[in-house]
């Protein structure tokens, strides 16, 4: 890991901390008040705020996890160099795709 990757992993972590807190508190609050999935989706669909919220979370989580997995495969299975970087990029794209799909289902 170099300075640039370290910076991005820490910055994405800093972005995720408040987003995770809001997500968990909102989820517990919504479920606790007996809202059904359909009722929750009724509130989130079409909302630009929730689109930005979960879009930002998916982007930050994808970058953060890809950098972490890059380190793990380097240290634990000795995948280095271009293969290590390539795997991290693909992993990031896969997470963006999966997370983006889930985000679209929530807000569109």
């Amino acid at each position: 890991m170099n300075a640039r990757l370290y910076y991005w992993q820490r910055m994405t972590a800093a972005v995720m901390v408040p987003l995770i807190a809001v997500h968990l508190v909102t989820m517990i609050y919504a479920i606790g008040n007996g809202l059904s999935a359909a009722e929750i989706l009724g509130r989130t669909q079409g909302s630009v705020v929730w689109a930005l919220f979960y879009g930002g979370f998916v982007a930050a989580a994808s970058v953060h996890a890809a950098i972490g997995v890059r380190t793990v495969i380097g240290e634990w299975v000795d995948v280095r160099g271009k293969a290590q970087d390539g795997f991290a990029v693909i992993f990031c794209i896969v997470l963006l795709g999966l997370g983006g799909r889930a985000g679209v289902a929530v807000v569109m």
Binding site: M1, N2, T71
Partner: peptide, 9 residues
């Protein structure tokens, strides 16, 4: 110390 193998590892 900031490159590959450096302090950020």
């Amino acid at each position: 110390v900031s490159g590959t193998g450096g302090c950020y590892n």
